[in-house]
């Protein structure tokens, strides 16, 4: 018994000492992006600078973790895959502005917070996957999704998922809440099935003939096309034509969300953190984002993957994403009111 207690104590101490010290040569990340996706990037950073990158990856609760730690907060940066999470940390007053030449040059103004409290690393277009047989000009605007001619032909994941919340919030930002509600009711009436699964599951549903249109992020096309472990996904991708919305002259442009980052005001490794941010916006890392995860780099002139290029280019919505994020709560309430997921 005593022995067991002693062993446990040794293990706890070992765990405690495994916590990174605030020594030079480290930077600590709280990440909403999966570790396995982050690793090639952080490995490249460590190889180039010798700075070690420590990561905690979680889905929720990181804001509360930073608040609870107070001045002793060990994290330097927060990385997210959606603007909403960034705004959540910003609203809690935990970010500080980053003054960096690189950032202001590389990241366009609408993809960062007006005071540089957060900024995008990549953009992620939320497009329409259409079955190859759907006529090319059958759908041109996001508003068309509410057109009754699509009755029983559209698939999507839960309206409460951050990607859809972002999309609905952008429509509220553009057209106001009332028009957005009408649109969402129209879309709801057109759904082929109760919202379910993830974006890839919608591609599968198109392949299986359950629906003709699906709302999904574009980068999944790359993930399916190159999937050698589950080759059936290559077939799903082959059935799909990507439709970019609102591309006409003067149109609002295709809705995008971002993956982004912000510097915590309690950061202990500030210099290393900024170095990492600049690295992530550099050519190497931006190229990795584009080739490994098929997202759109924010830096211009980065060669993207040839298959993604074959899906065509698009004009993106240039609304400031902070404005979109402000309407997130309203979007979530709208989803409830319309009974979108029910």
């Amino acid at each position: 018994m005593l022995n067991a207690i002693r062993n446990l104590a040794v293990f706890v101490t070992a765990l405690a000492t495994a916590v990174p010290a605030f020594a030079a040569g480290e930077v600590n990340l709280y990440s909403y992006r999966q570790e396995s996706l982050l690793k090639p990037l952080t490995d490249a950073f460590t190889a180039e600078t010798g700075i070690k990158v420590n990561v905690v990856h979680a889905e929720k609760g990181l804001t509360e973790k930073i608040i609870a730690a107070g001045d002793n907060n060990p994290a330097d940066l927060v990385l997210t895959v959606d603007v909403g999470r960034l705004e959540e940390v910003r609203a809690a007053g935990l970010f500080e502005p980053v003054e960096s030449e690189v950032i202001s040059q590389v990241v366009p103004a609408h993809l960062r917070h007006p005071e540089n409290l957060w900024f995008a690393l990549t953009t992620r277009a939320r497009v329409i996957y259409a079955h190859q047989d759907v006529a090319e000009d059958a759908l041109t605007s996001i508003r068309d999704l509410a057109d009754p001619k699509w009755k029983g032909r559209i698939c999507t994941r839960s309206g409460k998922h951050v990607y859809n919340i972002g999309l609905i919030a952008s429509i509220i930002a553009e057209d106001g809440e009332e028009a957005a509600e009408q649109w969402l009711r129209g879309l709801k009436a057109n759904l082929a099935r109760k919202p379910q699964g993830n974006d890839r599951a919608q591609a599968k549903a198109i392949f299986e003939g359950q629906c003709d249109l699906a709302i999904a992020n574009r980068y999944y096309m790359g993930k399916m096309h190159y999937n050698t472990k589950s080759p059936e996904q290559q077939q799903w991708a082959e059935q799909i034509r990507v439709v970019y919305l609102d591309q006409e002259i003067g149109g609002r442009g295709q809705h995008i969300n971002i993956s982004g980052a912000g510097l915590l005001n309690t950061a202990k490794n500030r210099d290393n953190a900024i170095k990492l941010l600049e690295f992530l916006l550099g050519e190497t890392a931006q190229g990795l984002y584009a080739s490994a995860n098929f997202e759109e780099p924010v830096r211009e002139g980065i060669a993207t993957d040839s298959y993604i290029e074959s899906l065509g280019s698009f004009k993106a919505d240039r609304i400031n994403l902070q404005e979109v994020a402000e309407h997130r709560a309203a979007a979530a309430r709208l989803v409830d009111r319309v009974g979108f997921d029910l």
């Binding site: 916590v19 990174p20 999966q34 420590n54 905690v56 990856h57 890839r200």
Partner: peptide, 22 residues
């Protein structure tokens, strides 16, 4: 997921990291 220290994984978090990527 929320309470773990830096660079710390269990079997369950390893499964989740991959499963959430489908």
């Amino acid at each position: 997921l929320v309470l773990r220290p830096f660079n710390f994984n269990t079997l369950a978090t390893q499964v989740w990291d991959r499963a959430s990527l489908e």
